[in-house]
Design a protein around this nucleic acid. Sequence first.
RNA 1: GGCGGCAUGGCCAAGUGGUAAGGCAGAGGAUUGCAAAUCCUUUACCCCCAGUUCGAAUCUGGGUGCCGCCUCCA
Length: 486
Amino acid sequence: MTLRLTNTLTRRVEEFRPLEPGKVSIYCCGVTVYDLCHLGHARSYIAWDVLRRYLIWSGYAVTFVQNYTDIDDKILNRAAEEGSSMEAVSERNIDAFVADMARLNILPADRMPRATRSLDAIRALIGELEAKGAAYSADGDVYFAVMKHAGYGKLSGRDLEQQQDNAAGRVATEEEARKQHPFDFALWKGTKPGEPSFPSPWGAGRPGWHIECSAMVREELGNTIDIHLGGADLVFPHHENEIAQSEAATGQELARYWLHNGMVNVGGQKMSKSLGNFTTIRALLDSGVSPMTLRLFTLQAHYRKPLDFTAEALEAAATGWKGLNAALSLVASASATATATPPAQLSPELAATRARFAAAMDDDLNTSAALAVLFELAKPLRSLANRLERGDTAAAAEATSPALAAQGQLLLELAGVLGLQPETFDAAQASESGPNDAEIEAQIAARQAAKATRNFAEADAIRAALQAQGIELIDKPGGLTEWLRS
RNA sequence: GGCGGCAUGGCCAAGUGGUAAGGCAGAGGAUUGCAAAUCCUUUACCCCCAGUUCGAAUCUGGGUGCCGCCUCCA
């Protein structure tokens, strides 16, 4: 089996064949750094992280480039609001982006170009387009002429004649007057008072959004790349325009495969900054939702489908992750202490399981089916982990079984392909608020004393009080009580 | 108005012709002072209508509902 991916360009599921055997070049549209990232971004970048990890696991050498759009109206507006500068807003949000992605265990891109550092490439590209007659300047702006480019609309399947001009009602009329065609878009915007600007042959100004990506793709990866990634909301106009610009300039295909992820919805509506219905990644993680829970939550659905964000679904993912994590943690700790060495070769059963995982992933990244394989592998390990905790001697013997060790190692490996890794509770972070360990232990001792005298009312009251502070008690056989912050 | 997509059990969600994965919740059981946690067992004819077929959630036609995009957007 080979990897098959849904290509927006052809609207079909196609076998993936890289330009160069064994190598994959990927460009992923990054964020405009005017604010913190929300769950929509998390979903998108988790999906692409999984694609990347799977390609690497499959043996490809992957070059992954993701940009930052660090000059844009929204960044300037934000800077004006807070009385700072474009650079300050951008830097702060780039730092936040890096931190958020790291928490979600998303591999950093190999290179992360920024629009403001790619101006030479941008100006060069605009110059080429102008020389070829694909662009024209008007009052300090430079526009791309969509009617001059045959094939405009091929990605989004649009016929310009049938589109409602300005259907969203967001176009500034003064800009409209300078365009030859309503769908022409700015490559270069003439400077405005009080805004940062950069010199160019067309006068001082700044680049348009679409040209940034075309220029950065070419500068970082060349004229034609294997895979171009982005959210479904970027298909039109952003990616359509990117294709038009790049292909008009080079005469070569920009990207062979275009992949788009579905939106995260809230109450049936797309989560977006402009609608204000968003939850930021850090707000969610800081509220106690674990990064792996969020990963599991997004990977349970297919990447192309819309994903409805609800508290209930997230809670289900959290419980699901708890079980998977129990198995993974057991394997991780067992590997650390090396109680059993897995056989060098996989058993036929495990090899088949591994093949089913790969088949699921090959099928347009069917992570939902791949997760089912993980849960299946985890089941006996979860069971073992629990029996070990209960002091089951038979379980201790089983734990040293090479066959089980092999199963554990396979689980760890496949979970890693999905970016899922064992998660341990961060006691240091949580103890910043609430009772400290000694206080908790004292309460537990008091409860033990109450139980010893069969004063269950008192014992339950202590348990409830701790529960209210987020401390969960787990009674073990033999009168032992463990606790954890939940 | 145009383009694209979706509709599977209480919730989330796989499954593209051969008799419904998985997760969560629920139910029963084990365990427990009672719980929690954990373990075991268990729960669906797939939006509607018509058609193709020996056989359809899966293909065709029609209908209904919902979502995304049509120059802010992952």
